[in-house]
Design a binder for these strands. Structure first.
Lengths: 127, 127
DNA sequence: AACAATGTTGACGTTTACGTAAAATGCGTA
DNA sequence: TACGCATTTTACGTAAACGTCAACATTGTT
């Protein structure tokens, strides 16, 4: 029993709740790079991993362009000093963005809790 | 020195880094409801607060439709039992979403930290 | 009164991220 | 070999969220 090497397009749509159109679109956008068996797409574990990164990025409100930038950070080439320093800057920017989102989430959760409490109190009074 | 009561459209665009088009669009969408002095819009503190909620929602990747739903939760009418219970369900859904986003953020931050470390190591080697 | 600054209402245009339908292809099975 | 099913390419369509004019109105100076 050896490890699965490839995923078909429908397997991925089923696993992640997306359509084939979406997967082909991401490929057009060079975000995925499945191999071919005749004309059929065969997605590698690497494709699947990247897909997860894409969908996670989308959940966080990043555009595909932003997702692309983030993914490019993950597999950046070695590069020289100047490049590396710029990369660090861009990483710092994204981290700052994410931390802002964290704050936004905490605030929203807190507010929703307050609403929930007041609704609960109403319900108790109706009892 | 009494409290400011109104904001002009340009004051808000300046404060939040958005355009007048955006503010008018939100008004078309019934998300804002500025008063008028002749034809000019006068935004109340309440409008400003709602604008902050909208922009925060957008940062978190919510669509305007979703933002609207969330805002409606904030100022829901008293309502009867059935309504209140449905409201609680919807609140719970949003909370779950937000918690998923929190996880996504933590994962991404962690990965960016790893990338940053490896970049830093490269830089040290180049020294 | 003239003018610039600020704002207003249309209304068509644009980008992003896919949806959707048509026509052709390959492949396992009856 | 004929069929059904998954998949492919091609291409036009669409919803959301504004952008970008054009043309007119208001208001506070010079």
């Amino acid at each position: 029993m050896t490890k699965r090497r490839y995923y078909t397009i429908t397997e991925l749509t089923a696993e992640f709740g997306i359509t084939t159109r979406t997967l082909r679109f991401y490929e057009d956008e060079k975000l995925l790079n499945p191999e071919r068996q005749a004309r059929k797409r065969l997605y590698t574990p690497r494709d699947r991993t990247r897909l997860k990164l894409i969908l996670r990025g989308k959940r966080l409100g990043f555009s595909l362009a932003e997702v692309r930038e983030i993914i490019e950070m993950y597999d950046h080439a070695p590069g020289e000093r100047g490049q590396l320093e710029k990369l660090q800057d861009r990483i710092a920017e994204r981290q700052a963005e994410l931390e802002q989102k964290q704050k936004d989430i905490l605030e929203t959760l807190e507010e929703l809790n307050q609403v929930n409490s007041s609704v609960q109190q109403r319900l108790n009074e109706l009892k």
